[in-house]
Design a binder for these strands. Structure first.
Lengths: 191, 191, 191, 191
DNA sequence: CGGTAAGCGAGACGGTACGTCTTGTCTTATT
DNA sequence: AATAAGACAAGACGTACCGTCTCGCTTACCG
């Protein structure tokens, strides 16, 4: 498939620059407010020219999505406890664990971008939300197969669960902790 | 009570200017993208000086919250159908009805602001979310009193319901229509 | 003539406010840069409303000219030493003496106003320069009568003397001190 | 010599933008009042961003001084008539000739800036007055060498001559014409 | 091994919103 | 009527970030 890769002439893309950009993005997210995480700052921090930055990422949203993909993807394994509630609990607890402050600010940034720009919203959906929904969907589908949840409700549960998560994240209505994870798991997988 | 109001010296605040700002905000929201809804544009559209704008509203978030309070608040009456599911259904349908395109873009703007600025998040919580949560909370409490929902779940339901609403709104994962309202009502008020 | 003064109805003009404005102008000139001497600052410092300020003085230039008239006018007496050079020397030395830092900054302000506004230039000429020129002119005319200076040159000398004074003041090319006064006196009244 | 110039990295400064700014400044001076000659207007007229404008010129004074240097510098040649009076006459007549309305308004602007800001005064002295004083100083030195003027008076004459010029310009006490030039030349180079 | 072509850093550019500031006018109640 | 208080429309200020551009230099390949 992509094996051959059609080697193009000219100087190849600098892997060093790519890594520097992702690292700078993560570093800035760890240190500063979401509003201070802009293209100019990323370029400066990464010692990369804005030209290079814009050549490979067309917007801040793309940079952040790439950073999240690179750094945070692998962290959430699919649990298999035998019960829906157990699976949900473990999955949500793992999700909560993965949301360190830096990641949290990256999520804030893409939420802000998605809210104010329809195109960014699409990118976030396709490149970030989709995989999470697929994972959680699989857990719910298994629960539905065991009769622990209605099939229609399973589809809606995705929105309810991730909705409440982002709601807490964006509006800071409360902490995203194990208590929250357990309550949601219990509410969705009520007997 | 507060009737007397202790008349301050000097020229009183112009109600005309205040209304013009709120109307301009609504008009811009109806016509343009959220990103084009900035203080400069509001001032120009309202024929109001930037000084006046900043004197009374310290940020765009405050202007939008005021606009929402003035124009959209009174629209959602508390239903009383006798059942939790019925009440939820009616309330959510009314909520969906109130989200015309202009209002939707105002909501997008405050979501973006809340996501990227902790202070804005607090303002949105206190001046916008709080009343909505109180309304829906009343419905849920009535349901709990009738034994239609567990008391603990009632508290969580607030997050699940409004979470899924904002999630759809921000990430455009699906339409906010009666179908959504009915499904959520059914899922929360499952027998 | 002006004896009767046609007493008008209503509250009479506040002499207190007038004095406060002139005092505030002088105080600000003594403390700050010419650029910080604006109508807003004068009003605030004088505890006078801008309304009152603009009612009686139509521009900053008028306020400053009034301040100069009130505070600095009487200081320069006409000398009579018997020789042109002596008279010039004493007059210029007295002029130099009268230019304390506060007065200097007031002069800077009216120079700036005159340079950028033709109308202000006319006011400065009529209400400030005219009297100085008359005084110096009298000295020069006495010298011409004694044959110490050519009549035509006497007229021009006004420009040369006051010109070099303002030039030093505006562009800070050198100090306005007795040395300068004596040199100018000697040059103009050369034997 | 300085030919190599040590080429700095990055995009080089746009000569086009530089010329556009100077041309816009001159054009605005020709058409409008000194007060309407502000940075915003210059940027707009030159089709140059404010950022670019402020990057290369830190204040309006610097822009004007640059404009004067570029457009008006070369116009006054040093005369050599053989007599001080003749040299002065020619030099002052040429100076008068160079003061077209646009240039006059530029001079008004820098005079206003110098009067109200010590730093601006220094810049005007160093970048504008200095060369003029050097030119006129040379003429006077030649006169002193020929014994046509006392050496001490020669130094003072600089102030007297340029002082009276700026005095007329700023306070509009009279026209800057050949009559003025001839009178001053005669008075300074009196036999 | 020298030519060709793209990537890269540096940083200038036009554009434009930001939040602040001063101007001169106005609208109140009080004097 | 004049006052103080202070709100108002207007618009310039200087700063910041955006996304694009123009340089000279570097790093590959390909003939």
């Amino acid at each position: 498939m992509t094996a051959q890769q059609a080697r193009r002439p000219g100087r190849p893309r600098s892997e060093r620059a790519r890594q520097a950009v992702l690292a700078a993005t993560l570093a800035l997210a760890a240190e500063q407010e979401p509003a201070d995480l802009h293209m100019e700052a990323i370029a400066k921090r990464a010692n990369v020219s804005k030209e290079t930055l814009y050549r490979w990422w067309h917007s801040k949203t793309e940079v952040i999505l790439d950073t999240l993909a690179e750094r945070g993807q692998q962290t959430i394994p699919l649990p298999d406890t035998g019960t829906l509630r157990g699976d949900l609990r473990d999955f949500l607890r793992a999700t909560v664990d993965s949301a360190d402050p830096a990641t949290g600010r990256l999520l804030h940034s893409i939420a802000a971008a998605a809210a104010s720009d329809e195109n960014a919203a699409r990118q976030v959906r396709d490149q970030f939300l989709a995989t999470r929904r697929a994972d959680l969907g699989q857990i719910l589908r298994r629960g539905a197969a065991r009769g622990e949840i209605d099939h229609d409700n399973a589809a809606l549960a995705l929105d309810l669960i991730y909705g409440s998560l982002w709601y807490r994240l964006i509006f800071r209505t409360g902490p995203l902790d194990y208590r929250w994870a357990d309550q949601v798991a219990a509410a969705i997988a009520s007997p």
